[in-house]
Design a binder for these strands. Structure first.
Lengths: 354, 354
DNA sequence: AGAGCGATTGTGAACGCTAACAGGAGGCAA
DNA sequence: TTGCCTCCTGTTAGCGTTCACAATCGCTCT
């Protein structure tokens, strides 16, 4: 049966041999043209290209991968991919990978569990990815990763530095110091902290940075209040804070919270609402600083001072790290990339900007 | 040179032949065990599985794809993947695909252009995806898609219904009618509209639904105000609206905007801020309804009445549609899935809830 | 003239898997 | 016993590439 006239599954896509025949050369010459080999006569090249064009030929990536042992595919495991941070990282990462000639396959986790992570990595490995970027910021996840002994180049994002796995992260402690320092510098005796869930490395690091900044400044360190990143948890904690302000004001004033550093913008939104509902003014009664700089932050009431993270840079760095691992054949290297965040001052912390 | 002792690139991963040898069977029997064929003796199966386990064997997906002509990979082209809607759709979509045994490769577009779309699809085709989901809601994109004549099963999300490409979408017009109807029902003489950019099908459909609802109710139809989905554009338009309220109040009262239907929650956030800055109360002076129900909406000041879209369902539906196309070998079928949105009433539109 | 070299092309053998077919063992009917 | 069917297993031939090697041509160099 002649090629292209298969009956069952319709005409098959043309192969290199088809192109070769049409161009009057061998399949190998076609391959050479496609791979930009030198030593192909210009006339021949043109002839081959014409045949390719006419047939609408495309190289079969599976056949190619089989013989070259390169799938040109990278895997990503991402947790909470609807949040602004992970989504932005994913975007930068995919673009960078594409620029490097790789395709990206993603597995999303709604919630982290050890088996979910393990299954996700299995799924990617089954499909032959050459390397994996893991964006799962729970501390537990990161240690699970080392135990999994994945024989593939791997990079973690926000994965902490105590591991034998290369990582890319924003300097969370620095961000927390910037936020806390800013509030101290504007005259507050101390700064309260609304933290994220403590099984997240980012939450832990922000808390550590906040505490360090206070201690260095000789300021008292209040008990941190722990939320779960959601606006709702911020709202509840905000109500509690408002209660303290009122109570302390009645009893021995000037001891209550006058400044709060919230570990992310969404919780900060909840805090803002709770404070306002309690009749408090931000920043006059209480100054608030968030973390992330989500697009909405500038339009909160009042606009939120926050710490901006360059998520795109994180994504790009994770790919360039992974690709370098691939190129050097090293399965793991102790490399870390740390990206500094920066403070964006808006009205929620500075009375002058109100 | 014996297998597994290659010098250059380290030991190669074991092959089916290695497993076969270790288990004392032929490679074909190994294949049969892996494919759950009947007619394999239980003892043999166990023996093979043990050998697989011991060697840590995994099937080579490229070799498999080469002979079966199935890559088990689906492609996604997504625009604006950091927005809550697209990100959620992506999440639901990937989970559904994984359940069906497919892997998902994504190409993100920061901004839509015809060539960017075309390149994205090329990139996916080069890697042998079996089908493509396109989440690019600009009208232009959708028509470009038909002209591209991609010989692959394809599904669009929010791609409109006038095309020969199957699509999944939320009933945007219904959403707009729900929002507008709700505002009319609470006693407002008419409803203003802050629209999204008019080259987006969703913006157009929401505008159409809003207009239809007004006309059916015999209410006057103000000129829609067009934004670009960002909080900033909402803020600017909000200032304009506030100006009108003030002006009309001075001149011939009761004619100015008392209710606004904003085409997405982010712009609504900007509108809320502008109104508040102008000294207006929401919902007393002006009622506001948004669209999307992003997680933050409940914590805006005041909490935002909005239209909730089930993005997860959209993602799932797009995969089940695409998979059914794959199974039936049909390259294109005129199928559409329409998912109804629902109204979530909060304080921004109902004085009683304030 | 013959050797030698670079440029250009072709030939054959993998890559690791599945599909198709062949074949042996055992059971049962004739 | 023979024949045939069912269960189980092995053998062979691709799938569409790339890689290693050989072959040819037209030169230049000795």
């Amino acid at each position: 049966m002649p090629r292209g006239v298969e009956s069952a599954a319709g005409p098959r896509p043309p192969t290199m041999a088809d192109v070769a025949q049409r161009a009057g050369v061998s399949h190998q010459t076609v391959s050479r043209v496609l791979s930009d080999h030198p030593h192909v006569r210009e006339v021949t090249r043109a002839e081959v290209l014409r045949a390719i064009e006419e047939l609408g030929y495309r190289r079969n990536s599976s056949a190619r991968a089989l013989v070259t042992r390169r799938t040109l595919t990278l895997g990503v495991v991402a947790c909470h991919p609807t949040l602004f941070g992970p989504a932005s990282t994913l975007l930068g990462l995919e673009e960078a990978a594409r620029d490097e000639g790789y395709m990206v396959s993603t597995v999303n986790l709604r919630h982290y569990t050890r088996t979910a992570l393990s299954d996700a990595i299995d799924h990617l490995r089954d499909r032959g990815v050459e390397g994996i970027v893991v964006i799962v910021p729970q501390r537990e996840a990161v240690s699970a990763l080392t135990e999994l002994k994945v024989p593939l180049p791997m990079v973690t994002v926000e994965g902490g530095h105590d591991l034998k796995i290369p990582s890319v992260s924003v300097d969370q402690q620095l961000g927390a110091r910037l936020a806390t320092g800013h509030l101290l510098a504007t005259g507050h005796p101390t700064v309260w902290h609304v933290a994220g869930p403590m099984d997240w490395l980012e939450a832990e690091a922000r808390c550590t940075g906040w505490r360090a900044a206070l201690e260095e400044a000789g300021a008292p360190v209040p008990e941190p209040l722990v939320g779960d990143w959601t606006p709702l948890s911020g709202y509840r904690i905000g109500q509690e804070l408002a209660g303290r302000v009122a109570m302390d004001a009645a009893q021995r004033r000037a001891q209550g919270p006058t400044a709060v550093f919230v570990a992310n913008d969404q919780m900060a939104l909840g805090v803002l609402r709770a404070l306002r509902e309690a009749g408090m003014s931000v920043p006059d009664d209480v100054a608030v600083v968030g973390f992330d700089d989500i697009p909405e932050a500038e339009f909160f009431l009042p606009p939120l001072t926050t710490i901006r993270q360059n998520f795109t840079a994180v994504g790009q760095a994770s790919i360039s790290l992974l690709v370098s691992l691939l190129d050097t054949q090293a399965t793991r290297r102790d490399e870390r990339v740390v990206i500094p965040p920066r403070l964006v001052i808006r009205a929620s912390s500075a009375a002058a900007l109100r």
